[in-house]
């Protein structure tokens, strides 16, 4: 790891000011960033820890019933505290990485990183969530802009994520056997006005909505409704863990399993 200056502010305003420095980088739980720094794939001049900011932490229900989760909330906390309010989301959080990773890793860090195989982007996109930052609100449909790319500007911090709670939802993850990341993960969420389906792990463009499945499931919320739909393998990730065709096939399988489990 290259040397860097370290700062640990206690408010969002101080963090935003600290991130205004040249080559400054925010540090969430560090479960991706620290290994990245060790490999010298990133070399920030300054690391600004967000872990000392109390206002970034916590899970609460808003007046309209939506669930708001602070950007600095760990996966373990979401797994515990969202269990009654949004069980599918809590279940997803409870299967990210391993227990020690879940005790450090944060929802804001995961979303800002936008790993193409991360779990949270699927929940955020399928829920039609809103990403709130220190300066604006960003709709999930506008936030994810391809592998490791988001709408966040330099120095912009995810302060919270607002999840509308669906009537029924489920996340199904097919594990990549070595990394335990999603080889393909599908989050299905049924709302009064339609169904949203988001897929992670599969596409070279990162998380995406499977709109054909959304239309079919909005008309008929049963696994059979999507059994004849095919996903185009071009644009899927192909590697030693699974070909493009294999991932395209898994998108259908995981979607059907998620619909069956959501009931």
């Amino acid at each position: 790891m290259y040397s860097f200056e370290f700062e640990k502010p206690s408010t969002i305003a101080e963090a935003v000011a600290a991130l205004g420095a040249e080559e400054a980088q925010a540090l969430g739980g560090g479960q991706t960033l620290i290994p990245t720094l060790k490999q010298r794939l990133a070399a920030p001049a300054k690391l600004v820890s967000l872990s000392g900011i109390a206002e970034l932490k916590g899970v609460c229900v808003e007046d309209d019933g939506a669930l708001a989760i602070g950007g600095g909330t760990t996966h373990a906390t979401v797994a515990r505290e969202a269990a009654d309010k949004y069980p599918a989301l809590a279940d997803l959080a409870s299967h990210i990485g391993d227990p020690a990773v879940r005790n450090r890793g944060t929802i804001g860090g995961s979303l800002a990183n936008n790993d193409p195989s991360a779990c949270y982007p699927a929940a955020v996109l399928a829920s039609g969530a809103t990403i709130r930052t220190n300066s604006r609100d960003i709709a999930a449909d506008d936030f994810f802009q391809g592998m490791f790319t988001t709408a966040l500007a330099d120095g912009e911090i995810i302060t919270s994520v607002r999840f509308p709670v669906p009537q029924a939802a489920n996340y199904q993850k097919f594990l990549q056997p070595a990394s335990r990341f999603a080889l393909v993960g599908v989050f299905v969420a049924r709302f009064a006005d339609g169904v949203r389906v988001a897929v992670t792990g599969a596409s070279e463009d990162g998380v995406f909505r499977w709109t054909e499945a959304e239309q079919a499931l909005s008309a008929d919320f049963r696994p059979d409704a999507v059994k004849d739909l095919k996903v185009d393998p071009s644009g899927m990730i192909g590697d030693l863990h699974g070909s493009k065709e294999y991932r395209a096939h898994l998108v259908g399988v995981m979607t059907r399993r998620a619909v069956a489990a959501a009931g």
């Binding site: 060790k38 820890s49 373990a76």
Partner: peptide, 28 residues
């Protein structure tokens, strides 16, 4: 030393963490 094997697990404020994946200054 990549946060995967868990040989470095310690408890920080009662929770298990991978100590090779956390800065010492964060445990202040």
């Amino acid at each position: 030393d990549t946060g995967q094997c868990g040989a470095c697990v310690v408890h920080v404020n009662g929770e298990s963490v991978k100590s090779c994946n956390m800065l010492a200054v964060e445990a202040d």
